[in-house]
Amino acid sequence: MPIRRERTLKVIRGAKAGAPGRPVRRRVVPRPVTAPATRIEEVLHRLDQEPVEDPTEAADLTVVGDPAQVEDPPEPDGPPVAPGEPDGAADGGRRVGEPAGPGRRRALAALLVVLLAAALAGAGVYGHRWYVDRATERARQGALAAGKQASVNFVSVSAASVDRDLQRITAGATGDFKEEFTRGQAQVRTAVVENKVESRGSVLRAGLVSGDRRRAVVLVAVDATVKNVKAPEGRPSHYRIQLDLVRDEGSGDWLVAKLQFVG
């Protein structure tokens, strides 16, 4: 829209006569001349006829004004945000490059302590379980070996070494079985000596029926060759022996608490 400018006319008035030889001074008095008023219909019509301003050209326009009245654009608070990332989205709500506060550091430290404690507790539980399993397995293997040896000792008796053989059986017994065998030990010795018994046994098979670190039940299959007065050449015998074993807390040895022939 064209800018209306006010025009002034210079009116020269005659000056008073001065001294002879001096130029006559004239005063110029500006008088505003009011431009004729423009009708509203003409303004609207002119606006409709004028071309629309090109936005690309308008973007290149520079406003020139008083430097004191032109304000600089406000600078953003804090460090710049990475391109494509919303403000405050980086690093859990903090701006990029902003250091974590004391509260956040304490929370992270507490979280690390909790995780470490959980890991140590899990390792302790797993380690304890592993230790118990290993100890139980070793105890079962010990009970199986003790059951096989006790079975061989029980069927391996000779008139020539009867006292040593019976003592070996007694040393590996405990509880009711030890009491019963001790009471009948004299009769067994007499029968072995009078009949000139010589028996040697060997284990065929053995298995653990049940067991833990304190008690176990073992089943042993034993073959033996028995010689006596009636069978000087010897005769084969087959035994199936079940042994209830108890582990001595002091020595850690497995002792026979009950012995019986089965099958």
Rank of each mutant, 00 (worst) to 15 (best):
Y126I: 12
V125Q: 13
T190M: 09
G101D: 04
R214S: 10
P55G: 07
V218P: 00
V28Y: 06
L120A: 15
L219K: 06
G122L: 12
V70L: 14
T190D: 15
A109W: 03
K148Y: 05
R31Y: 09
A191L: 15
R106M: 13
D87F: 08
A107V: 10
T38V: 15
R39N: 11
E71P: 06
G14Q: 15
L243V: 07
P76Y: 04
A146G: 05
V220Y: 01
T136G: 05
R183N: 08
D165V: 03
K178C: 01
R200W: 09
Q185W: 02
P20Y: 07
P36M: 11
G65L: 03
P102Q: 05
V52T: 14
D48N: 13
G65T: 12
P20H: 11
L116M: 12
I241D: 02
T225K: 09
P73K: 02
R94Q: 08
V222R: 00
D165F: 01
R25W: 06
V192Q: 05
L204M: 08
V222H: 02
L115D: 07
P55F: 06
V162I: 04
Q185M: 09
R215E: 10
V229Y: 03
R13M: 11
E198P: 01
R200V: 13
R213I: 03
K230F: 08
P23I: 05
A224P: 02
S202M: 11
D72G: 08
F261Y: 07
Y239C: 06
A160D: 14
V209S: 00
N195E: 14
A19R: 09
N228Q: 05
G92N: 03
P73E: 03
G207S: 10
V43W: 05
A216L: 00
A117N: 01
L245E: 00
L166Y: 04
P67T: 03
R164N: 09
V114Y: 08
G207D: 09
R104I: 07
